[in-house]
Design a protein around this nucleic acid. Structure first.
Lengths: 260, 260
DNA sequence: CGAATTGTTGAATATTCTCAACAGAGGTGG
DNA sequence: CCACCTCTGTTGAGAATATTCAACAATTCG
């Protein structure tokens, strides 16, 4: 029995679906082995809490499949989803006693969980692991800053289009969706309208209206409430105002390149 | 001459005002020395660009004094200030060819600049430096997520109050302001109304009206347009709805702590 | 099949934005 | 030192956008 468990553990990483996209990628054989030794699989059904806001000590985990939402709440009930985690993403805030957000399974989720103490010890022992997590965190920060621009400056329709675009980019790698033809994408929304509105800083009704509007304009098609078909990704991108970064600013206040 | 420069370099870190608050804190003597060897002081006048958006290669620097604003721009001119850097903060995105934002001096700024290649080499050689920068990045991410909640869910008045509170917390450590009595704070705004509106996802006019409103209600006093006096920090905090994080959510969708 | 949940739609309302005018502050040159 | 100009900030009125409240439709679950 002990023997079987060992074999199972040893093979876990080699057969792991997210092995080469998660923070485990680019780790040395030793590091993978150390991580594997403390890892534990866990399945969390949709809607179940994974991590409480302000909860003492974080939890660390790779998302193997499914979608996890991270929410922050104002104490009059207003809330916002500050992030969505998909397969291969990493959950957990290192070096902090209190977890700053609330993590919940948006769909059924498979996790590869690492105990807090053990993980932080490995982080200290293996600079390679910390380096990888640092890079992941930088990417997360980039995404967060990009999302701030959406919340601060985009109109409701652009926000909804941006959201669908983001989902279209991340979900198709998963079992529940598929790319059919070039530029045509088909997927199942992992979130309800209420959750989408919490991502976008809008109300349920506004999200619903904008989805209807995009449908009427032919930018998207609704197979059913949760299932969406995008005939032409470029048109959605246009609606999202997902334009590449450009020169500094149109009328920057005396912005001169600073040489010295 | 060479001699004088050496002495100057050697003393730079020991006399540095931000030495124990910046990423240089918690570095070993060797690490500090290595950093010092490649560092260069630079003064940037208010309004001048430090780093272009999409510019090839980043620049790395500690902010010694002054305020730097980081902006992102949509190509129709809509823009947002994704972050403000104050004394002791770190500027620069490691491990990325293109800089994701545009950095500009909001006030006159003193920087301690590290050349790109040299800094990244030190990061690779000294895990202690990378560890410190990682921690700094995590704090930045926390702040970014907190700000998203503001952009997504707070009303104009709460946003303006939150902004003033943030400034009150960070600026008083600087030369241009001072704490006078318990709970009374007095400072000079480092940003114009236009810049404040770009931080908050509002228009200039809305910011102006909300400042007037806070003044009328006695929450703040305006010495002049740029100089603000906060008689009671607690009242401002109330107006900002800056409430501590609470239990998960008021009507969470079947949120049950997941034990296994 | 019926109840509960989730999503849509409409009408009225609230908030913020836009456009426009004006006021105050700061700088320049006579 | 003041007149003048520019830039920044304020204020008002009307318009646009998103929210709230309410009814209803579709979907899901037991």
């Amino acid at each position: 029995m002990e023997m079987f468990l060992s074999i199972d553990q040893a093979s876990r990483c080699t057969t792991c679906a997210i092995r080469h996209r998660s923070i485990c990628d680019a780790l040395s054989a030793t590091e993978i082995l150390s991580l594997n030794r403390i890892a534990r699989s866990r399945v969390v059904p949709a809607g179940q809490m994974i991590l409480g806001e302000g909860q003492a000590r974080s939890v660390f985990a790779n998302i193997v499949s499914g979608v996890v939402k991270l929410t922050k709440t104002l104490d009059d009930g207003r809330q916002h989803i500050i992030g969505l985690l998909f397969a291969s993403d990493f959950l957990g805030r290192a070096y902090r006693a209190e977890n700053p957000y609330f993590a919940e399974a948006a769909t059924d989720v498979e996790l590869c969980v690492f105990p807090t103490a053990g993980f932080e010890r490995l982080l200290a022992e293996h600079p390679g692991l910390e380096h990888r997590l640092f890079q992941y965190t930088l990417t997360e920060l980039d995404a967060c800053q990009e999302w701030m621009l959406l919340l601060a400056r985009k109109k409701a329709e652009e926000r909804v289009a941006s959201f669908l675009l983001m989902i279209a980019k991340r979900v198709p790698n998963m079992e529940c969706s598929r790319v059919e033809r070039r530029d045509e994408v088909h997927f199942v929304l992992p979130l309800s309208r209420a959750e989408i509105s919490d991502c976008l800083g809008l109300t349920i009704e506004t999200v619903s209206r904008q989805i209807t509007r995009l449908k009427t304009r032919g930018v998207i098609e609704l197979v059913n409430y949760r299932e969406i078909l995008i005939p032409d990704l470029a048109r959605l991108q246009e609606a999202a105002y997902d334009a590449p970064a450009k020169v500094p600013s149109p009328k920057a206040r005396r912005s001169v390149p600073a040489e010295d």
